[in-house]
């Protein structure tokens, strides 16, 4: 199996598997976030469950961290290897004649997603970890003890327009990444038959609607409070 993992095709498989995982994760993330628009109470309860459930915290969270880190580290490794596979560049190259911009710039869309993720972690993940595991406050309550803190914190984060703008840009890049990535991941694992081709439309819808949904949530909280 180590031969498989070090081979070009093996890397394609693991890249695609981590991507599948991320796409499912983001769907789940979206489902919870949209609750903040529909029902702040349900959002609070779900956030508290996700934030304190041991299976989520000690089971899924490490898998997620590994998945993200593996995906972007391997993304950069492959990009460097691929660049090295052509020592002298073409004086004239017409990439647009045979491929989409999205497919040729996965490293750029991915790179911007990474920048976004770092900011996102500083914004939400580190404060969570700090509150829960360093200060040891697992209650999920506001400082005055009047109800859960999650919704309040979320709304507070989306007050400054610069952060809302940054989120919007981040999700535009996610959309570009997925417009190629969704169907690409199926091809990578060897699934390219009539059923998978039928999924193309769904993939495009996913790639546009999910990021748009996140953008909507950010704008909603910015302009509603």
């Amino acid at each position: 199996m180590s031969g498989f993992l070090n081979s070009s095709i093996g890397r394609k498989y693991t890249m695609a598997l981590s991507a599948f995982f991320l796409m499912i994760f983001i769907l789940q993330h979206f489902a919870i976030n949209i609750l903040s628009v529909l029902s702040p109470d349900t959002f609070n309860e779900t956030s508290h469950f996700m934030g304190t459930n041991p299976l989520v915290q000690y089971g899924l969270q490490p898998v997620l961290l590994f998945g993200v880190v593996y995906h972007f580290v391997m993304g950069f490794v492959l990009e460097i290897k691929n660049k090295n596979a052509r020592a002298i560049k073409y004086a004239k190259n017409n990439g647009a004649a045979n491929s989409t911009w999205m497919s040729r710039n996965m490293i750029w869309s991915g790179g911007f997603i990474l920048v976004f993720l770092i900011i996102h972690f500083l914004d939400f993940w580190f404060p969570e970890i700090n509150t829960k595991y360093i200060q040891g406050d697992m209650s999920g309550l506001l400082a005055d003890g009047e109800g859960y803190r999650y919704y309040e914190e979320l709304v507070h984060k989306f007050e400054p327009i610069w952060r809302v703008a940054l989120y919007c840009i981040g999700f535009v890049f996610l959309s570009l990444h997925l417009l190629h990535g969704f169907s690409s991941a199926f091809q990578s694992v060897g699934a390219n038959n009539k059923y998978v081709k039928g999924l193309k439309g769904f993939g495009k819808a996913y790639a546009v609607l999910i990021p748009l949904g996140f953008i909507f949530i950010a704008l909603f909280h910015h302009f509603n409070h």
């Binding site: 394609k12 498989y13 045979n98 497919s103 690409s184 038959n193």
Partner: peptide
């Protein structure tokens, strides 16, 4: 020392014999 496929599909478009990407999926 060939690079790693990222499924851009440029090869299929430029191939003079119209070899399909399905062959890469099959190889995978």
């Amino acid at each position: 020392g060939f690079g790693n496929c990222t499924n851009t599909g440029a090869c299929e478009v430029e191939c003079p014999k119209g070899i399909s990407l399905e062959n890469i999926a099959r190889m995978n």
